[in-house]
Design a protein around this nucleic acid. Structure first.
Lengths: 242, 242
DNA sequence: CTGCGATTTTGCTCTGGCGCAAACTCCTGA
DNA sequence: TCAGGAGTTTGCGCCAGAGCAAAATCGCAG
């Protein structure tokens, strides 16, 4: 939508990627410099602006990705056009790893929540990565396990908690995963609208707005447009459990 | 609770398990007779009566299982004691495969929905299975992928659908996965209470009861105690989508 | 065959939170 | 600097479905 000018020439392979990009990331941390070099040489680097789909639900899983910078929302879109956010993925994690669970198409759509940078590889390299690179498979499945755990938690939350608790939980999770310490609290590190939060908690933007207004009056949070700062996490924890 | 007499001596290793038990099951179908023999010789076979926990959430994942006969419900229990059913697993599938996703404890509790029989192996054999037995890893991850897909679907349903649609969907899924064709319709192949259905759809047994009563009047379903027969699946599909 | 506990049905009330509508406010791009 | 649109707030009415209560059934154990 915005800044179409930039969107067009977005794809580009940088001249030479530095090894340090990957050496600290779990899936690659046990590899030798030489192996990382090979991996990087096979990678495509690309910048995605905010709001762009990295890949889309149902499409053939042609590539898998490592998010180097930014945040990505993984969403599913219902037949009636509603969006449901399944996960938030921070920089440093793999995404689009359909191949790892025996799928040939992406099970969900990945949309950037900020301008982002990701490496990607053709899916045909997946098996090589798994077999050649020590720790890659293990770390990948750990990530997967973590996500399964999160999905499970979401199900339980949706099934048993009130809206207020779900929103409180969502905020807590967001500041845990992607929070940045700032003057007077912890702020969510990327722009997030009431609408986004409502898609994350299965409610409406109106209800989210009401809740945030209420909490702001009580000094639990502060918010401006697309920005939310949590000032009293503990109070939210209490709310989320009652 | 019931029939404690039977519960006590339940564990037993049968003298010699027949290879045909496993040869048709996907995770093992590509193996040679000799390999299957080895696998069976390492297995413990056990019968579980209905309502018994095969393993419990949070406990160390000491064994993994292959359900040979029966049905198992995978549930999570909230701090307040409510149960939420995450999945139903039919005979022929692996369960308790925490190790596959890098976990050392079970993420949920597995409860038998009928009397059941399962083989199990100590988790330390997992890596051997994955590396030695062709197709085992692939099939396992396919299963996992399938379950992730189901979980995703549940999230979307919980987030966007009305209770009536969720219950209709749940019934349809149950008859698809575990339905048995009978006179005048398809019956769910194991005893299931209104309570069970409500835990599967995040509602109350009262609401489920009302819905079933209504549907029964319209001839869509027939039900007795712990038994539900779907007479007009197509009508349910329509309901589940509107 | 009987009694009892488990399961199911049904009525009534109450409310969380959605839907609708409208006003407001803050950025952004020109 | 200003206009317009995206994002946010707030009020109001309503209703799906939960909670509570009680009665009605069913089917198994003894």
């Amino acid at each position: 939508m915005t800044r179409v000018m930039d969107a067009l020439p977005a794809r580009k392979t940088l001249p030479r990627l530095d090894e340090s990009l990957l050496t600290h990331l779990p899936p690659f941390s046990r590899l030798e410099r030489r192996q990382i070099r090979t991996i990087l040489d096979q990678a495509t680097s690309r910048r995605y602006e905010v709001g762009v789909a990295v890949f889309s639900e149902g499409h053939p899983a042609e590539r898998f990705y490592m998010l180097l910078d930014g945040y990505v929302r993984v969403v599913r879109i219902t037949p009636t056009g509603e969006q449901v956010t399944a996960l938030h993925i921070p920089a440093g994690q793999l995404l689009g790893i359909a191949k790892a669970i025996g799928r040939t198409t992406y099970p969900a759509t990945a949309i950037t929540a900020t301008d982002s940078i990701a490496l990607s590889w053709p899916t045909r390299l997946w098996d090589t990565f798994v077999s050649e690179y020590e720790g890659f498979a293990t770390e990948t499945y750990n990530t997967l396990g973590h996500r399964v755990g999160e999905m499970n938690t979401r199900i339980v939350e949706l099934a048993t908690q009130q809206v207020e608790q779900r929103v409180a939980n969502a905020l807590l999770r967001l500041i845990n995963q992607t929070g940045r310490k700032v003057e007077g609290g912890i702020e969510i590190d990327f722009p997030i609208t009431r609408q986004d939060l409502s898609e994350l908690t299965a409610t409406t933007l109106h209800t989210v707005s009401r809740l945030l207004s209420g909490w702001e009056k009580q000094g639990l949070v502060e918010s401006r447009r697309k920005r939310i700062k949590v000032c009293d996490p503990h109070a939210l924890v209490v709310l989320s459990q009652s």
